[in-house]
Write a protein that binds this DNA or RNA. Structure first.
Length: 480
RNA sequence: GGGGCCGUCGUCUAGCAUGGAUUAGGAUACAUGCCUGGGGCGCAUGCGAUCCUGGGUUCAAAUCCCAGCGGCCCCA
């Protein structure tokens, strides 16, 4: 038995399983600097899929991609006080160029609001210049002091950050929500991960924003994961960066802005939610490889005939725009290949052996359930297409059930603590709206308010902490 | 923020308690040649280690001590 497979069981030690799965499936590797990771081919291909899907979405609604520098003068960051306070503890600074100290130290962007908005101030003159709707795909650095974890919390990561500038508050509000719903669609339809959406409390909102909307998913260990955020910045940045325009009314107005982002953390979420003891299980819509074909050339049969058939089916699948790998390497046995591609999360495998050849059939195996079936060769392509759809749906359905199973409505603080320690997950509870209660709960249990959901429900009891009159039901959880 | 564990060929690891003789051992991977092939197939040969880094203790350090770097886990 080799140790190239996953040796830790997902249910036994989730954290260890996660790390092992990420490393052995070759999604990522550690880099020499603490908290930094190498995103390897397989993960980068998934990231490119996410980019492709999201680019298509935002371009359809008039957004365009740009690139701003990664160095931000200290003075820029300081302009919006709350923003600076929020980010300064984890900013990495460049203080020297070559061997001479810089006159003003430069932040390596932790996010690009300030450097972009300085430019926006120059670009915006008239209402005719609005809206600005741009996005950039880039790396950012946040010098984490807490424990880091592959994909979920690293000091450098990749993301997209969208930034828009509008003439009215209403337009900005609509943008925030439009993007949030595009994110939700991306996560549920493509990543097959169900999410809750809502508004962050003041203590959890983006530093400098009016309010932050977010998407939260539930991981199998009962911890929540923030999947993306969409912020309404109001006029906070407009005022400090002096982004003004002359309106149709001939008056000066400050602009209304939004910013929003998703990161490579999503890849970690996919691993956690769908993976199993054999490795990754990738939703077909983001899988870099949809189908792997493994020819099984027994001795005594004609290996060339089997390979030819494999190539024929490969070509047919490619005609349907499916990503196919024909693994005809001779140095590995079929069993080895099965394990290898399962580790990589390929949704469907096709086996073609002498038995299949003789009976004009192929054997199909699906990654999510492990079920094998035999179909007529002529039906192979259409069956694969059906299977891919089924797998996509099945993964989402399973994750949906898991989310529901890990969501508990609690009435009292005792019940809250009991459920949190025994089962974790989302705790739906009444809240009075006080930041103090929120803070106390965090101190005492480690759980925070993940969301104030958009779907409002009447409080079922007094505030879960103080017992006073509650204003709404919110979702608490421990989180990554 | 608090606590704990860990670092030895590419990878996983034995050795460390009780310092010295294992030539730092094994497995796996890799290379070559055979053999195979429907769930990590087998045989042979070969290649492969600054024992994380720096200091200290000692006649002697992979082993003990200190610091740093890096990784993991748990708690809040």
């Amino acid at each position: 038995m080799s140790d190239t497979g996953i040796t830790t069981k997902k249910r036994v030690d989730f954290s260890e399983w996660y790390t092992e799965t990420v490393l052995k499936s070759e999604l990522a590797d550690y880099a020499p600097v603490k908290g930094c990771m190498i995103i390897r081919e397989h993960a980068y291909a998934i990231w490119e899929k996410i980019q492709e899907i999201f680019n298509k979405k935002i371009k359809a609604t008039g957004h365009k991609n740009v690139y701003f520098p990664m160095f931000i003068p200290e003075g820029f960051l300081k302009k919006e006080a709350e923003h600076f306070e929020g980010f300064v503890p984890e900013v990495a600074w460049v203080t020297e160029g070559g061997s001479s100290p810089l006159e003003e130290k430069l932040a390596i962007r932790p996010t690009s609001e300030t450097i972009m908005y300085d430019a926006f101030a120059k670009w915006v003159r008239s209402w005719r210049d609005l809206p600005i709707k741009i996005n950039q795909w880039c790396n950012i650095v946040r010098w984490e002091t807490k424990a880091t974890k592959l994909f979920l919390r690293t000091r450098e990561f990749l993301w997209q950050e969208g930034h828009t500038v509008h003439a009215t508050s209403e337009e900005a509000e609509k943008e925030v929500m439009d993007i949030l719903l595009e994110y939700k669609d991306l996560m549920e339809k493509y990543l097959a991960i169900p999410v809750l959406i809502g508004v962050k409390t003041d203590s959890e909102k983006f530093a400098g924003a009016l309010y932050t909307t977010a998407l939260e998913a539930m991981m199998p260990d009962g911890k929540a994961l923030q999947m993306g955020t969409s912020h309404n910045l109001g006029q906070n940045f407009g005022k400090v960066f002096d982004i003004k325009f002359i309106g149709e009314d001939k008056q000066d107005h400050y602009v209304w802005q939004t910013s929003w982002g998703i990161t490579t953390r999503l890849i970690g979420a996919v691993v956690m939610v769908h993976g199993d003891d054999k490795g990754l299980v990738l939703p077909p819509k983001i899988a870099p490889v949809h189908v792997v074909i493994v020819p099984i050339p027994y001795k005594g049969t004609d290996p060339e005939a089997i390979k030819a058939k494999a190539r024929e089916i490969e070509a047919k699948l490619k005609e349907k725009n499916l990503a196919v790998v024909l693994d005809d390497r001779e140095e590995y046995t079929p069993g080895w290949k099965f394990n290898h591609w399962e580790l990589k999360g390929v949704p469907v495998r096709i086996e073609i052996g002498p038995r299949d050849l003789k009976q004009k059939q192929v054997t199909l195996a699906r990654r999510d359930t492990g079920v094998k079936c035999v179909v007529k060769e002529d039906d192979a392509v259409s069956t694969v297409e059906t299977l891919l759809e089924e797998i996509q749906h099945n993964l989402y359905a399973k994750a949906r059930i898991a989310l529901e199973e890990k969501t508990t409505t609690v009435k009292s603080y005792d019940e809250f603590k009991k459920v949190l320690s025994e089962k974790g997950g989302f705790l739906k509870a009444s809240w009075c709206g006080s930041g103090k209660c929120e803070e106390k709960v965090k101190e005492e249990t480690g759980a925070t308010i993940r969301l104030r959901p958009f779907e409002k429900e009447e409080p079922i009891a007094g505030c879960v902490y103080c017992g006073e009159k509650a204003v709404e039901m919110v979702y608490f959880a421990r989180s990554y």
